[in-house]
Each structure stands twice: as structure tokens, then as C-alpha cells.
Amino acid sequence: MNKLHQLNTAIASRSIKIAMLAMGIAVGAAGSAAALPNPPITACGQTISTSGYYQVKGNLTASGTCITVAASNVTIDILNTASSDPCNNTTISGSKLSGSAGIHIEPKVKNTFIQGENSVITNFDYGIEDEGTNSSGDDINLSNNLTAGIALLGTGGSFSNFFSGALQHSSGGNCSLPPPQEFGVYLDGGSGSQIFNGITAGNDYGVFESGSTGSTVALMLSGSNIADGYQFNGGSKNYIYDDLAGTDSFIPLSGNDGFGINIISDTNDLITDNTAGGNTDYDINAAGDSTCTSNTYWFNFADMPSTPCINSK
């Protein structure tokens, strides 16, 4: 539950980087040709079939899927042209075609790493569709995709430090027109996945789990969603901790219009150290589990839990 810390950390990190850039230090040129063995990706429609480091340069536009990862041990670095307005960051944009993805990690692919550099992936069916194993993604914005900003469908995927939802201008107002994403993050059927230190806002559902096992949802902020901040439905043995659902005083999140955290039919989850307030329905809802026996709930801070045992043991 260290929202302050995580924000301070992020702010401090960015401040350092900005200060260093302003001082003209540190951001030196590449010193090694060997470190850039692959040509940059400058257009959509690419399938990466050889392991290595790939750099995305410039704004890309796709009519279908933009980048498909078909080999293991691939690193994708989306070189961002930083802007004071996130809407003007480097953008990979689709055409809202059903089944399309900004980046699609295929099944049997292992150890993909995506460094987003705070770029934007928008207007696909899925911003990132991960069907692989042990993928990682960091520092990226998923905005106004149709079904999900991030879909974790494989095993052991880990995504952090991201925003998924309706990205806004620094001056306010959405970057893109509605409709909102259906899910900020969609965990479906996979196992051992995790998301942490991310924000979901302006989706139908911030985080939606359906049949995932042994996954971790930690240190997330989810608010201003049309339905639930988090919904867990059909999985088991998931770890849900240090999350915030609803209002937050540090970023302009309001309550979710449904439940803050909605545990529908998961079993044997551990749910602890979460904070929820300002949501339209219960802040934490244990559907049909008035005695808190289907899952283990303790040390939560919900203004309106569906049953008191959610907050304490």
C-alpha cells in the first residue's frame, strides 16, 4: 500500500532523468555496433522471428496487427520522442480491427521484454496480447484499444509501470475518442502472471481476471472506470495486495462506477493490504462469501466492504 511511495519513486526517477538531460550529461550515444544487430522497426506488419534487440523508431500505423513476436529472447525498445503532453508521445496506432494487436507475443515464445519508454499503443483490439511465457513489459501507455490494453493469456508474464485506459492530455481531455477499452488489463486463463505499479482508469473494467491461477495483482491504482476497478471471476490462488481502488488524492482518480474490488467466484485467493473508497457499489465485494471463507481477506481498508470480515481478522 505505498501509493505515496510508488508515486514519489516514479516522480523522483523522472525528475532525475529530466535533470540529467537538462544538464547535458549521461545520455550518450551508443558505443557499440554489436548492440544494435537488427535494423530498426519503422513500419507495422513486422514479424520478429529471430532473437535479439529491436528498436521501434517513429510513429507507426497499422491496418491489422503491428508487431508479432514469434521468437524467444526478443527485446523491443520503443524509442519515445518524449513530450510534455503524453498524447504526443511516440504512438503505435491501429485501426480498431477485431483481433488486431499493437504487439502480439505468440504462444511458445519465451522471455520477451518490451521497454515502452512511455510511448503509446492505441486503437487496436488488444494493445499488447501476451500468449507467451515469462514476458515482461514496462513503462508504456495503452489507450483506447477495443478489448484490452494488456491481455495476459500465457504464463509468468509481468507488466509494470504502465497506464491502461483513456489517456489524457496534460491539460485534460482524452487523447482519443471513445469508446473506452473494455478491460485495462485482462488476465484470462493464464497462470503465474503479474501486474504491479500500474494505473487503470477510464475503462469498462480496470483489471479483469477470468480463470487465472497463481497470478499477482499488486501496487495497482484503479479508478474512474465505468464498471469495477478490479473483478476476479473464476480463478484461484491469486495474490491481490497493496492495490488501491477508487479515489486517490495524488492523481485525478475518482471512484469506480461499479465495485472497487469485486471478488465474484475466485477461490483461495489472498487479499490483503488493499485500500478502497469512493466507489459506487461496495468498495470491496466478496460476492456470496459473507463469512470470508472462499478466500482469505485481512488487513484491508475498505470504506464499504460487503462484509466486515474483509477488513480484518
Binding site: T291, C292, T293, F301, C309, N311, S312
Partner: peptide, 12 residues
């Protein structure tokens, strides 16, 4: 909020 668990059959 810090009420006791309401109980029961299998409360851990």
C-alpha cells in the same frame, strides 16, 4: 471496519 469476522463455519 475493524469488526470481527462474522464467523463461522470455516473461517480460518
Amino acid at each position: 471496519a475493524f469488526a470481527n469476522a462474522s464467523s463461522a463455519k470455516a473461517a480460518p
